[in-house]
Design a binder for these strands. Sequence first.
DNA 1: TATTACCCTATCGGCTTAGTAGATTAATTG
DNA 2: CAATTAATCTACTAAGCCGATAGGGTAATA
Lengths: 136, 136
Amino acid sequence: MLSKKTKYGLKALTFIARQENKKPVQISTIAKSENISKKYLESILLTLKKDGVLGSKKGKGGGYYLIKNPNDVAMSSVMRVLEGPIAMIPCVSLNFYEKCDDCPNENACSVHKLMIEVRDSSLQIFNNTSLADLIL
Amino acid sequence: MLSKKTKYGLKALTFIARQENKKPVQISTIAKSENISKKYLESILLTLKKDGVLGSKKGKGGGYYLIKNPNDVAMSSVMRVLEGPIAMIPCVSLNFYEKCDDCPNENACSVHKLMIEVRDSSLQIFNNTSLADLIL
DNA sequence: TATTACCCTATCGGCTTAGTAGATTAATTG
DNA sequence: CAATTAATCTACTAAGCCGATAGGGTAATA
């Protein structure tokens, strides 16, 4: 399941990227327009800022703005920051690997192979889709 | 995330499908061999039985056995029974569709389109992989 | 210097997951 | 028939996560 966190984050990023001018967008503006709890959205945008996708400006006329070019914001990186691993199971995750405690031998595991396939196909989509593709 | 339920279920199915003879396999045998809590595995196998993939026999020499041919057990159906929707988000699910409460217009949603792509690529894998492929 | 709006910490209810316990039912075997 | 075996059913629980909320703190701008 895609968490609301990720869903809201993607919607917010899209909203910001759609701005003609490069003026900062306020949290409350996005929250209202996209039907998202303002306080919750706050924490999400903060996460995206720490990740380096967004920048922020305080005070009057402040808000959040895009730091990178939408073409350079890959879905794979956004997904990893907000959702966590792209793989369905830790033992096939590239960035969040963890050994299964019930599997003595990964290579002999029937589930393992299947999950690698799924991971690769998802990864291909997320790597080849950028924020710019979402704007359309 | 793939739930342990699904993971255990797949492992159990593989275990049963690997049996040379078609004699029923007992829960405890699978549980020990695959390091799964016996009682938990019980409920999983019961679910698979209700779905029509497995049959069971009580009493001495009883256990669970495969009803269908491994080639006819598609991963997509097993996934749906154990894991639920294959889609990452209900609004793009084919079998478990639900409207988003925050989206006024699905077709205008940037997340929607992305999630359809992911669903389709996963579905293709799950549809084209059967239990027979896992045995190898 | 007042206002605006980001920043941080803490908390909470509700839900799901994984696992446990115990009693019951049905089939086989002696 | 009786004893054994193993599936079936019901109920419960501990732990963890998610989404949301509350309230105050801090920095920049006009």
